[in-house]
């Protein structure tokens, strides 16, 4: 498969990348100059992966650094890992500097690839993603930061729904570079090459990462309690999606369920079933817990456009509202990914 630099389009490596006759991306090597000898691994998601990310019941599997990650992403990465291994095995006698890049689901694969390249080859790795979804739990995010020596350039548009999924307990690496701050969630914000905003367009307007506004995936969420009576303030923005998530985490921490849910991996009861059960169990434990749950559910309904829908505190009802919220966010992400095809 290996070839030298391309001379034109026809019959070239790039033609195969562009024609989608191959699935995952390409590797380039820097000519003499600023990046002399560095490799770039550029990855893209595949159409099949749209179904993977929109699966609410995403399972977990163990990746190269022994951390739990999204099983669908890991499976996809493993399907081309052998090719990566063969390529870099031939160069394993030199110090490898590898920049790993990806947009959307390609960004998820880039996270896994960066970890694997570090673990398998001891390569120096830097990771760059645009509009990538979350890949694993907190422990995976920490390992990714360590594997890249904190060189993770996770770029987002605030209105892009894809970085919002999968929801907690999946977590991003901490630093976030916000290329465009418009907040109302819209699938169009996920596109790479459109002018408004378009990741290619917004990224090109910054000379360095230092010039870009920073956000953060908080390791320890601030305490957030939502007052049901104020739910009409909630709009469909990434800010409110995060705030509702933070309120949920606050409640689970208060009731002592947070650790158990985050560390109990099972494919028989989804993490979201466990959350619904935990919220149901909170009812009647105390007035303040009931009030917290009512606030969380009320804001979820408001986020989804049903602020006046009645709430009942049964497991079935709570599971329904949680699923409505998840379906809403995942649906936006699914639409966004569909737009990229």
């Amino acid at each position: 498969m290996e070839a030298g630099s391309i001379k034109g389009v026809s019959g070239s490596i790039l033609e195969r990348v562009f024609s989608h006759s191959t699935n995952f991306g390409c590797i380039a090597k820097a000519k003499k100059g600023l990046f002399d000898g560095d490799y770039v691994l550029a990855l893209r998601g595949t159409a099949k992966m749209r179904d993977v990310i929109t699966d609410l019941n995403c399972g977990l599997s163990t990746c190269s650094n022994n951390q739990p990650v999204h099983a669908g992403f890991n499976h996809t990465f493993n399907s081309f890992r052998k090719q990566l291994e063969q390529f870099f095995n031939k160069r394993a006698n030199q110090k490898l500097n590898i920049h790993v890049v990806g947009h959307s689901l390609g960004g998820a694969l880039a996270n896994l690839a960066a970890n694997w390249l570090k673990n398998h080859f001891g390569a120096n790795v830097k990771l760059y993603t645009f509009g990538a979804p979350r890949v694993g739990y907190h422990s995976f995010a920490l390992q990714t930061e360590a594997a890249t020596n904190n060189h993770v350039y996770r770029c987002v548009h605030a209105a892009d729904p894809v970085p919002l999924v999968p929801v907690w307990p999946f977590m991003h690496t901490e630093k976030e570079y916000i290329l465009n701050g418009a907040a109302t969630i819209t699938p169009k914000a996920h596109r790479m090459t459109d002018q408004t905003p378009g990741y290619l367009n917004t990224a090109s307007s910054f000379k360095s990462y230092a010039a870009i506004s920073r956000g953060m995936e908080k390791r320890i969420q601030e305490e957030v309690r939502l007052d049901y009576e104020k739910r009409l303030e909630c709009t469909r923005t990434s800010r409110w999606a995060r705030k509702i998530g933070a309120a949920l985490i606050t409640h689970l921490r208060d009731t002592g369920k947070l650790y158990a849910i985050q560390n109990h991996y099972t494919n028989t009861l989804t993490v979201y079933d466990q959350i619904a059960k935990a919220l149901t169990d909170s009812i009647d434990l105390s007035k303040s817990y009931t009030s917290d749950v009512k606030g969380i559910l009320g804001y979820m309904l408001a986020f989804c456009g049903y602020p006046f829908k009645a709430i009942s505190f049964t497991y079935a009802s709570i599971r329904h509202i949680l699923k409505l919220m998840l379906t809403n966010v995942f649906s936006l992400a699914g639409q966004a990914i569909a737009l990229t095809k």
């Binding site: 550029a42 390609g106 090459t193």
Partner: peptide
């Protein structure tokens, strides 16, 4: 090891994402 600028990284991401059509 230098860091790819945002523009360079986006160029690569776009390349992997873009389609021939």
């Amino acid at each position: 090891m230098k860091t790819l600028t945002p523009a360079f990284a986006a160029d690569f991401a776009a390349l992997a994402y873009e389609t021939l059509e």
